[in-house]
Design a protein around this nucleic acid. Structure first.
Lengths: 319, 319
DNA sequence: CTGAAAGCGCTTACAG
DNA sequence: CTGAAAGCGCTTACAG
């Protein structure tokens, strides 16, 4: 029994001959371990939960794909749960109100704040994803949103754009990056070019861009949108007004959703390294599991991103 | 013990008073059943697997979201696995080569053929999704692809289009629907307007549309693309050639991916009832589980679809 | 209506 | 290096 277990779990101290015989027997009977039993004995469920606003949102679908992949490599199942982008649902997910016990929890939140974490009583290992940072309140992994936003705006500056709007203005890292880039270039930060929106939707992006066009001569020649989806809406508004992207207005998005490639003109955007995001999140979960319940200091890790230049800033080259 | 179990599992024959006391105790200690133990005892894993080509593909992401939702309602976890749209990987998934046992398997296949199913040895309950039908070889649920394609083409006919192309021609239900619609309208089925593609990608849609435009005066005034993604590529080609959608060429897609709403012009498309798809698939799994290993006759069920009319056929109304 | 007991298939000290 | 045995937390006949 123990020997077979040793072979299966890859422990040392098994004769090469014995190991081969065990492996042969496993192959012969087509043995597959019963994970329910294993997890019961080990006191683990073998399941981690991934909470995203909606799987239909392309950014989260792509992210979930990577998490599934990296988790499978570790023998974990991923229970995907949709919060609907609802603050209350996100808070609830934090409490591990799942129909079963889970070994770990990855939450890609839109509304969660550090104060929500202070109230958390559940001790399930947790990793947070997303733009918001949480200090010591929780483990967190993301790209450097400020740097990324800055790279996006600097790209527009490099193209000679001087009146660059921020669509989706909100106090936060992306806005900081936008401001930093302008200031480094010695340009004024104009409030009228920083348009807040009420949701990261195409409709809001469209509405915001339309408002910017009302500025007439003061209208922007470049737009940095806080998500691709918002950028698409902005491009729609420009198109409907007969403006040309990028000649009249260059546009940069954020997220690199698959559609950024398919749209005409294709969208220049910030592409987070989603595989790295998933890998680091899982590593953080493992570390917490290994450390036991010890309240190790929360870690905030950054993963790489790239600026992908496409037609919405470089122009359409096609015939 | 048994009484508590009866209460938890909702069996009859428990005094109302006892039931209340048990429930109170459960609430007091914050009891949550250990699913690993339950599954071990019941001989089930509590996990079903969903195999999709890639979660990044918006149609499958949306579908997965619905499956997760309907499965959660039944207390099942959904293990999502990506086949990469690879025929061999799809075949392998059929054999249940998962790291753990699963209670059921839902496969949304792109390449699977009835012959692949004949070779199947694994007895895990299986439900197939997708355009392809499998006769008696396996349970299958889908929309009526022929009817849907026909509805798409008839919509173009209703708009007065007479030279309607099929982008993504392949012997199959969608092509049948296309042909039926033309024949019912007394129109010729022209081979030069039926363009095969090598993949359901935007690039291929673009290439195909470009080829159609080479026809000059014989070029189409309407395009039915076999997927939204292909339709987006086709619209790109039209746009780059300076043609207007829908005035010059009206376009209809298939799938109703989220992008169909966001693109300019927004895309008229066939919208399958994904919730129904998920619900029926899970019901079929349950039925097989209940029936035991008895080889019940395979069922092929249809779910509803709707034609969603948007700007790519109705025109842009905006200012 | 309700206990006591066995068993689901693993893992893991514990002896040898 | 390798057996024997207990235990993980449920469910389910089986008695009463």
């Amino acid at each position: 029994m123990k020997t077979v277990s040793n072979v299966i779990n890859g422990y040392a101290h098994v004769t090469e001959r014995t190991r081969t015989r065990v492996l042969a027997a496993i192959a012969e009977v087509g043995y597959r371990p019963n994970l329910s039993a294993r997890n019961l004995a080990r006191g683990r469920s073998g399941v981690i939960a991934l909470v995203v606003p909606r799987l239909e949102m392309p950014y989260f679908a792509a992210l979930a794909g990577r998490v599934v992949e990296r988790a499978e490599a570790r023998g974990w199942f991923v229970l995907i749960h949709e919060s609907g982008g609802d603050h209350a649902a996100e808070r609830e997910a934090l409490e591990g109100r799942f129909p079963q016990r889970i070994d770990g929890l990855i939450v890609s939140a839109q509304h969660l704040a550090p104060s929500d974490l202070a109230e958390r009583t559940d001790r399930t290992p947790l990793v947070l994803l997303g733009e918001q940072t949480f200090g010591d309140a929780a483990h967190h992994v993301a790209i450097d949103n400020t740097e990324a936003a800055r790279a996006a705006v600097e790209h527009l500056l490099d193209l000679g754009r001087r009146r660059i709007a921020l669509v989706g203005a909100t106090a936060g890292p992306r806005q900081e990056g936008y401001v930093e880039a302008l200031e480094s270039a010695g340009l004024p930060v104009l409030p009228e070019l920083m348009v807040p929106i009420t949701a990261n939707s195409g409709e809001e992006g469209e509405r915001a861009a339309r408002a910017l066009l009302e500025l007439g001569a003061a209208a922007p020649d470049g737009i940095f949108a806080v998500t691709d989806w918002v950028a698409l809406g902005a491009m729609r508004a420009l198109h409907l007004r007969g403006l040309h992207v990028p000649d009249d207005v260059a546009v940069v998005g954020f997220d690199d959703i698959p559609y950024a490639r398919a749209v005409t003109p294709s969208l220049t955007t910030i592409s987070p390294d989603r595989s790295a995001l998933a890998e680091v999140a899982l590593r953080m979960l493992e570390a917490q599991l290994a450390a036991g319940t010890g309240p190790a200091a929360a870690v905030d890790e950054k993963v790489p991103f790239t600026l992908v230049v496409r037609e919405s800033t470089a122009g359409i080259d096609a015939t």
